[in-house]
């Protein structure tokens, strides 16, 4: 083995890399928030599809199934080249944000749907029978239970959004991976840069999992945590 590792340039760039990891967290967080909001809407639309489907319900089902059954990279390309064909040019950041949000919304919609369907009908009846309105029933009884049900998949989705934001590199967005590639291409120290970046991702993921477990433990004490 006649390769000499050179870690100094990477260490020198560590502050830049850490800053770039904030971009990673930012784009992941935004796409999760958008994914939750849109995913909820999609789930509600899809759950209300009984018998006849309206165009809105077709739209929801199409979104969910395309998001789940094609590669994320394909979805990013769509928001990149695809929209470009209609003369709609998104910035690299917007491409990543749109692609990840589209994808998260589709996956989360199905998690939410499963969560809602796992709450027995009788809970709804019991709440209504003591005079709660539909809104109160959802807010006080149904949503807290659904939240507990989807906590784990939601956490996984957050981790996943962080990992997949690395595709920013392929569409020119300089988040953590994109920046690493940029610096590496100037020094030819690809392995060293990516090894350090791998460590940063690993740490980020562990941090997210730990935060989720602690928050979940506080929220769901009633049933011995998550």
């Amino acid at each position: 083995m006649d390769y000499n590792f050179h870690w100094q340039p990477v260490i020198g760039r560590l502050p830049d890399l850490l800053l770039a990891s904030l971009d990673t967290l930012q784009v992941a967080a935004l796409s999760i928030v958008l994914g939750i909001v849109i995913g909820l809407l999609l789930a509600i639309l899809r759950m209300n599809a009984r018998g006849r489907w309206t165009p809105l319900q077709w739209f929801a089902v199409a979104w969910i199934e395309i998001a789940r059954n094609t590669p994320v990279l394909f979805q990013l390309f769509f928001f990149g080249f695809g929209l470009g064909a209609w003369g709609w040019h998104l910035s690299p950041f917007m491409i990543v944000l749109a692609g990840l949000s589209f994808n998260c919304a589709g996956y989360l919609a199905e998690n939410f749907r499963g969560g809602f369907q796992s709450i027995p009908d009788t809970q709804y009846r019991a709440a209504r029978s003591v005079g709660m309105s539909a809104g109160q029933t959802y807010y006080h009884i149904i949503i807290p239970q659904v939240l507990r049900k989807v906590w784990h998949p939601l956490t996984n989705q957050i981790v996943w959004a962080v990992l997949m934001s690395s595709l920013g590199m392929l569409v020119g967005y300089q988040e953590l991976t994109g920046s690493a590639q940029y610096f590496a291409s100037r020094t030819y120290r690809i392995f060293e840069y990516f090894a350090v970046v791998a460590l940063i991702y690993y740490a980020l993921v562990k941090l997210i999992l730990m935060a989720s477990r602690m928050l979940g433990w506080r929220l769901f004490r009633s049933e011995g945590g998550v």
Partner: peptide, 11 residues
């Protein structure tokens, strides 16, 4: 499972 696949490939 905790490192982006893209990074694993390049590494």
């Amino acid at each position: 499972r905790s490192i982006p696949l893209l990074i694993q490939l390049v590494l």
